[in-house]
Simulated scan of single mutants.
Amino acid sequence: MVLVHLASYHQQARSYFTKKISARRFNAGDWVLKVRTGNSSKLDSNWVGPYEVIKALDNGAYVLKELKTRKSLLNTWNAQHLKKYHV
Score class of each variant (00 low, 15 high):
L74F: 07
N75W: 07
N78G: 06
H5W: 10
V53E: 04
F26L: 05
L43I: 09
S40N: 13
Y62Q: 01
R24V: 01
V53M: 04
Q12P: 00
R24C: 00
Q12W: 10
L33R: 03
T69G: 06
L74D: 12
D30M: 03
V48W: 06
Y85I: 01
S15P: 00
I21N: 04
K71F: 08
K65M: 04
H10N: 12
E66G: 14
V2R: 14
L82Y: 03
V4R: 14
H81G: 12
K71W: 08
L74H: 10
G60A: 01
T69A: 06
K71H: 15
T76N: 09
S72Q: 15
T76Q: 05
N78P: 02
A61G: 10
H5P: 02
S45L: 14
G49Q: 04
A23Q: 15
V32N: 00
K34D: 01
N46R: 15
R14F: 07
K84E: 07
L67T: 02
N59C: 05
E66N: 10
K84T: 04
L57T: 05
R14Q: 09
E52Q: 15
V53C: 05
F26T: 02
V63I: 11
L67I: 06
A23F: 08
N75C: 05
T18L: 11
A56R: 14
G29Y: 03
S15A: 10
G60L: 02
E52K: 13
S45C: 13
H81V: 09
A79I: 04
S45D: 15
P50C: 09
F17Y: 11
Q11R: 14
Q12V: 06
R14N: 07
H10F: 10
S72Y: 11
N39F: 09
K68P: 01
W47L: 13
R24E: 01
S45T: 09
R24W: 02
T76G: 00
L43E: 06
F17K: 14
A79D: 13
V87W: 03
N39D: 11
F26E: 05
L74I: 07
V48N: 06
L33I: 03
H86A: 08
K55W: 08
E66H: 09
K71M: 13
A56C: 07
K65P: 00
I21E: 11
K65W: 01
A56S: 14
N27I: 06
K71D: 13
K55H: 08
L82M: 09
K55P: 01
S41A: 12
W47M: 04
G29M: 05
K84W: 02
G60P: 00
F26A: 05
N27D: 11
G38Q: 07
V2K: 11
W77M: 05
G60Q: 01
V87Q: 02
N78D: 12
A23K: 14
Q11A: 12
S41W: 02
Y16K: 14
E66C: 11
Y16Q: 15
S22Y: 08
S45V: 06
G60I: 01
R14E: 08
A13C: 06
L67A: 03
S45E: 09
L43T: 10
H86D: 13
H10C: 11
T76A: 02
G38N: 11
L57Y: 13
V63P: 01
G29F: 07
V87F: 03
K19W: 08
